[in-house]
């Protein structure tokens, strides 16, 4: 930044940054205001102001937990997201390692193939998957999602880990193997610990993707007690053409908190993972 040109910093940095933040944070603000505002607010009442409330209330949150199955939805979502993330991470780490380190025939084209499967839109894939879920009688159980989410999570994790493993110097592993480690031990003791930031980022991404997933959850789960947050909130709190805006927003807000925590908790590792920094 050029010295003395303070206005430049404002014009080119602070103002655009503020606009950007406003744009990103406004939906959250709207969710908060709506979820703690009065239940019914006629637009023509005195001092009507949709951006602020003078009588904050927990009614919507209470409604959410007492009148709906929100607590079970939260639990379902957590369980499903954690389980599918775990499966995908294990597969993704091993597949990524194999594709980036073991020189077997067609490793390159296999890697590309895996990436292409990630590009197949879920909106098409759910039709054949629904058939499979039905055949195995998994419909309306958490397993229908735990086993289908990896179809897009594994390619994603594999691809991410492949890139990360490529950034880990080959010599580390070679040195370990000369030092007396088998290939398996070298991977376990050296390569994987070094790749932890990458594994964490893949995990956070996978967790977020499955937490937010909508289509499969909507199609494969039908009874209210089995639903996830994203489906439960939208299907149970919109009755006919009546939107229960207060509880809806409270649900959306509570649903986004775990993801926000996951991000901010791992953010250091996560950024390190994205920039792929392995310092010897």
């Amino acid at each position: 930044m050029i010295e003395g040109a303070i206005w430049r910093k404002w014009v080119f940095f602070y103002v655009p940054m503020a606009l950007f933040l406003l744009f990103l944070l406004f939906p959250f603000y709207w969710m908060v205001i709506t979820s703690v505002g009065e239940l019914y607010r006629p637009w023509n009442s005195i001092n009507y102001n949709p951006f602020w409330t003078w009588k904050p209330t927990w009614d919507h949150v209470r409604y959410l937990f007492e009148e709906t199955l929100f607590a079970s939805w939260l639990w379902n979502t957590t369980f499903i997201a954690l389980a599918s993330t775990a499966i995908s991470l294990v597969c993704g780490v091993f597949a990524g390692y194999a594709l980036s380190r073991l020189n077997f025939p067609f490793a390159g084209s296999l890697g590309t193939g895996i990436f292409i499967t990630y590009l197949v839109p879920q909106t098409l894939l759910f039709i054949p998957l629904a058939e499979i879920i039905r055949n195995y009688r998994l419909g309306d159980t958490p397993w229908s999602l735990i086993l289908t989410y990896p179809t897009f999570l594994i390619p994603f994790c594999t691809w991410l880990m492949m890139g990360y493993f490529k950034a880990v110097p080959r010599e580390l592993e070679e040195c370990a193997r000369i030092d007396g480690a088998s290939r398996w031990q070298a991977m376990l003791y050296i390569v994987i610990p070094v790749a932890i930031p990458g594994i964490l980022s893949a995990g956070i991404f996978a967790f977020t993707l499955s937490w937010n997933e909508f289509i499969y959850a909507l199609v494969f789960l039908s009874s209210p007690a089995q639903k996830t947050v994203s489906v439960g909130v939208t299907s149970e709190l919109i009755r006919g053409d009546v939107f229960f805006w207060g509880p809806l927003m409270a649900g959306a807000l509570l649903g986004s908190i775990p993801v926000a925590i996951a991000y901010s908790f791992f953010v250091e590792h996560y950024v390190a993972g994205l920039t792929g920094s392995v310092k010897g």
Partner: peptide, 28 residues
């Protein structure tokens, strides 16, 4: 490589970044 009873020093040192100096030396 592990059975040849050799030790190798690499150009980029290839130190295990997550281990202390002691553990690096003790690993083998």
């Amino acid at each position: 490589p592990m059975d040849r009873d050799i030790a190798m020093v690499f150009q980029n040192y290839a130190l295990y970044p997550h281990m202390s100096v002691y553990d690096n030396m003790a690993f083998g």
